[in-house]
Design a protein around this nucleic acid. Sequence first.
DNA 1: TTGCGTGCAAAGGTTTTGCATGGCA
DNA 2: TGCCATGCAAAACCTTTGCACGCAA
Lengths: 136, 136
Amino acid sequence: MNELKKYKTKQRVAILEFIENNKDKEITANDILMYLNKNEFKASQTTIYRYLDNLVKEGIIKKYYSEEKSSSCFQYIGKKCNEHYHLKCNICGEITHLDSEIFSSIEKKIIDKYGFKIDNIKTILYGTCKKCSKTK
Amino acid sequence: MNELKKYKTKQRVAILEFIENNKDKEITANDILMYLNKNEFKASQTTIYRYLDNLVKEGIIKKYYSEEKSSSCFQYIGKKCNEHYHLKCNICGEITHLDSEIFSSIEKKIIDKYGFKIDNIKTILYGTCKKCSKTK
DNA sequence: TTGCGTGCAAAGGTTTTGCATGGCA
DNA sequence: TGCCATGCAAAACCTTTGCACGCAA
């Protein structure tokens, strides 16, 4: 994505910090709001939603919808995730980063046959991870 | 799954008919509401939501969440869609059904390397379709 | 007649928007 | 100083709930 000008504010730092500290969890906008209200810097829900949108567009976090919570959830994925795909376990929520070579042949096949260019940032492959397959 | 007593009402017939006639589309509760309002039998949104819940519980339709539409979508379950993947255009929303062979090699690779079993019903491959790539 | 189904209106919850103010660079 | 970011309140949505009435069986 292009370099949009962005300022570093206390709110943004606090929000991103919270998300980074909870890499392994799905976080709702409300979780962030509740957490910040108990801490040093507060941020309004408006700010939280707007900043989360930015982070999603930049590919730094991912957004999903949780039926269970009836709200959107966000999760940190890191800055170098623009080149590969992600697997997400339906059961434990764990995210696995896929080697990019695995998908390159398929990307090409799909472009050739359907003219469809897959967006690897937005696309998430859902399923069941190794651990959860065993304990089932 | 058990045999709950159910009445056959005009509203329910109309709702189910609409869903069946749009097997290949994602339908929101609102789509049904709008459609019915233009036609023979009307149904309130309350009725629609309640009946959709029933159909989901009975396994007749499937419910998932559409980020695009920011609302739940429902789809009649046809056997054919349980075996392959779907491409969804970020721009026009068109859904393309993928030939299952294209993905089978990848599924195997991912199981071998990560032990991850992809769920082809829940997974949707997002991107840009041929038409929208051209007009861009 | 019985009791499930319906519709209305209102509530509940999440997310977005408009606008004036605040604050980083 | 120039803009972007923020916060408030209200709006816009989607979905659920309570309650009285309607209607299939």
